[in-house]
Design a protein around this nucleic acid. Structure first.
Lengths: 319, 319
DNA sequence: CACAACAGGTAACGCGCGTCAACACCGGAT
DNA sequence: ATCCGGTGTTGACGCGCGTTACCTGTTGTG
């Protein structure tokens, strides 16, 4: 039925201990012939070590839990996690996704029962989450702990600098009104604020909206008139504002400039097409992966020069 | 550090065997006082059984793997899985998400090592996946195996009936060109076809497009002229076609009628707003959950009348 | 009073694995 | 003949848990 290391051992004519060591990289000590026999046997039998047994013996599992932010999980993020899945798999780690919405208590149960090698999140852990993770002695990786670039701050900063470079002097940041949908908003707004600061401009205004015609219209009223350039939480927000502006006869970008984030396909369909930011997932994923591997001791800390996630401005007609 | 059942036993002044039985529902045999002491101790110590130990002892784990289709994972699906997570948790099952993109071999490894109680998918398993799941003796649940309504067929059917009820006689189905992004397309088109059949109309045309201005324009050329009503794979596709039609001066819905699917927020921003379908996740999730629970023997088959997932037409101005 | 019946509880095993001290073997040095 | 240092290999333990046969009183029954 299910093949165990015992089966492999018998099939290769060695002991289970031998199998275990050879299959776990501690095989230098064995004769090459033995190694080959064992590897061959494992392959023939389609042996796959039981995660449970291994976890029990080692005290922690090969699972890495990734928390999915409560935000649209588009192709971008999918590719990101897809890449992480594959990459971690080659190092014997299994990536497993969990929605971050359910209560932290639920996360606690999962961590306690699953004993993951690490918990990874693209967004900052809440205090509750952090406490939970720490109390179980599990490795937690979030933007704060990675020492990586704070992507979200960088996003706001680049949005700001881009708008300013285009001559805009009055800036605003547009959040999603629903805080759960807006996990990155605060950090991005800080980035925008810093862009204003370094250019000697006043602090940006701040608005929040739902992605509906009515609420976008209401949000426009919150702005101090026309001639403002808005850095949007994402392309959806930008699209909503664009649509509302068009409806009330404001010209974009003359009366209202908009810069989005995410480079969504739908953002290319508007008139004018959105100017937005694109995020180089390749780089970001690699950084995250390396970070996980080295911290869990699954790979050496290859001294790669610190790579910054590449943010790219995608030109459109909205600024 | 980590509390084991041994700790609980000591704390309650009983043996580990007693703890195990009481905490697993086989506690009728014990004195009420003992039960209380054990439960109390478990609570005080924040005991959470080790998934690994339990898996090893029982032969299969408490994990349920849900395969995430390679499609936009929007709020709709998120809520769906969020609900499943919570609901299954109350029955001691842990929902774990996996992207379905990585190779089937990868899925095989995960199944073999993780020994999940079930593998759940909203889309049909590929033959490869099905074989893999079967060979490991794991319970696989996909639309085929559930005997539930085939949601996707129902979607195409309702799109078709709605268009026909509005007087449209020439129908088409618009796929996403990228097959990986179009996992439900084939079934939905079949539903549309059946709608045509029952109304005595000719078979619908079929087009495919990427969600870009250029490709949407190209797709319009594939249609046999104006006056066609298109059932779209989702609101994004509908939006792309709407945008392309507007650009070339076609009036919607007079020259081109469009019905989407998903009731996305962005679909409400177009001019005219999209007519689309909304999917009652509540019902669907409950059905899926119940199915998992009964099949894995975690709950009795409450004889609920077969509930059909409610599909609702969301009126707009595009048909 | 002997014996069955039963409620309440436990010791002991095995699940599959990683780990290491210990062992067998062998050629060479003493 | 004895010792020694490798080189390969394995036996045995424990990880945390579920399960079951078994044990110990206590209460009924004839």
């Amino acid at each position: 039925m299910i093949t165990t290391s015992e089966d492999v051992a018998k099939h290769a004519g060695v002991s289970r201990a031998t199998v275990s060591q050879i299959l776990n990289g501690r095989g230098q000590r064995f004769a090459e012939a033995t190694r080959d026999r064992v590897n061959q046997a494992a392959r023939e039998l389609g042996y796959e070590p039981s995660s449970a047994g291994r976890t029990l013996a080692r005290g922690s599992s090969d699972f890495v839990i990734a928390l999915i932010p409560h935000t649209t999980f588009g192709p971008t993020l999918q590719d990101f996690f897809s890449r992480m899945t594959d990459e971690l798999a080659t190092h014997g780690l299994t990536l497993v996704l969990r929605l971050s919405t359910p209560s932290a208590a639920s996360l606690g149960r999962v961590i306690a029962s699953m004993k993951p090698a690490a918990v990874f999140s693209l967004t900052r852990f809440t205090d509750e989450e952090r406490a939970l993770i720490g109390s179980r002695g599990v490795l937690g990786l979030d933007p704060d702990s990675t020492g990586d670039t704070d992507y979200n701050h960088a996003i706001g900063l680049l949005q700001g600098r881009t708008l300013i470079a285009h001559g805009h002097r009055r800036l605003a940041f547009a959040h999603l009104a629903d805080a759960r949908q807006d996990p990155f908003g605060a950090d991005r707004e800080l980035g925008l604020r810093d862009a204003c600061l370094e250019a000697g401009l006043p602090e940006p205004e701040s608005i929040g909206l739902d992605v509906t015609p009515d609420d976008a219209a209401r949000a426009l009223d919150e702005l101090s008139g026309t001639g403002i350039a808005v850095a949007c939480y994402n392309d959806d927000v930008a699209t909503a504002l664009l649509s509302a502006a068009t409806r009330r006869g404001w010209r974009v970008p003359e009366d209202l400039a908009l810069i989005g984030m995410d480079h969504t396909t739908l953002g290319r369909l508007t008139l004018p097409p959105l100017t937005t930011l694109d995020f180089d997932l390749e780089t970001a994923a690699e950084a995250a992966i390396e970070r996980i591997l080295t911290t869990t001791g699954h790979a050496d800390a290859t001294q790669h020069p610190q790579r910054h996630a590449a943010l790219r401005v995608v030109p459109g007609g909205s600024i």
